[in-house]
Simulated assay, not measured.
Amino acid sequence: MSAMRKALAQARLAPEDIGHVNAHATGTEVGDAAEAHAITRVFGRATVTAPKAALGHLFGAAGAVEALIAVLSAQHGRIPPTRNLSSTGVDPRIALDVVTEARQATPHAVLSNSFGFGGQNVSLVIAPSR
C-alpha cells in the first residue's frame, strides 16, 4: 500500500487519475488477497489486470516486462485481459473490477505493481505523454 501511495505522490496524481492497475498477482490465494486488499484501500473498486496469467512468472524479469505492458497500455488506451480467468472465476472476496476481456479506454495513467522475495515492493505510475 505504501509503495502505491508513494508512486502516486511522486507522480503528483490522485487515485482517480489511474485508469487501471497492473497487478503483480502471482496466482496464490494469500498473495493475491493481500494485494487486492491493498489496491482496494488505495483505489476503492479499481480496474485491475494481471499479465502473469498469460506470461507465467518471469522471476527477475517480471517487473520489467509488466512495466512495458503498462507503458503500451497507457500509450494505446487498451487494457489487456487477465488470461485464463472468467468473470465468474474471480474470488467474491476481491472487490475489484478484474479485466477478463481486453478493453478499449482513452489513454490513461497506469499503476504497475511488482513484488519480490525479501519484502521488495515497487509501484510505478506510467502515464502517456501530454
Rank of each mutant, 00 (worst) to 15 (best):
K6E: 14
A7S: 14
L13Y: 05
P15Q: 02
P15M: 07
E16H: 14
D17A: 13
G19E: 00
H20F: 15
N22P: 04
A23D: 05
H24N: 09
H24A: 04
A25H: 01
T26K: 05
T26P: 07
G27R: 08
T28G: 07
T28A: 06
H37Y: 12
A38D: 07
I39H: 02
R41N: 14
V42D: 06
G44Q: 10
G44Y: 12
G44I: 06
A46K: 10
T47I: 14
P51M: 01
K52Q: 07
G56H: 05
H57S: 07
H57C: 01
G60H: 06
A61K: 08
A61N: 09
G63T: 10
V65D: 06
E66K: 03
A70P: 04
V71I: 15
S73A: 13
G77D: 05
I79H: 00
P81Y: 00
R83E: 10
T88M: 13
G89C: 13
V90N: 10
D91S: 14
D91I: 11
P92D: 13
P92I: 01
A95S: 14
L96K: 09
V99M: 13
V99Q: 11
E101S: 15
A102T: 10
A102F: 01
A105V: 14
H108E: 02
H108R: 12
V110S: 03
N113C: 07
F117E: 05
F117G: 08
Q120F: 11
V122D: 03
S123A: 15
S129H: 06
R130F: 01
R130I: 04
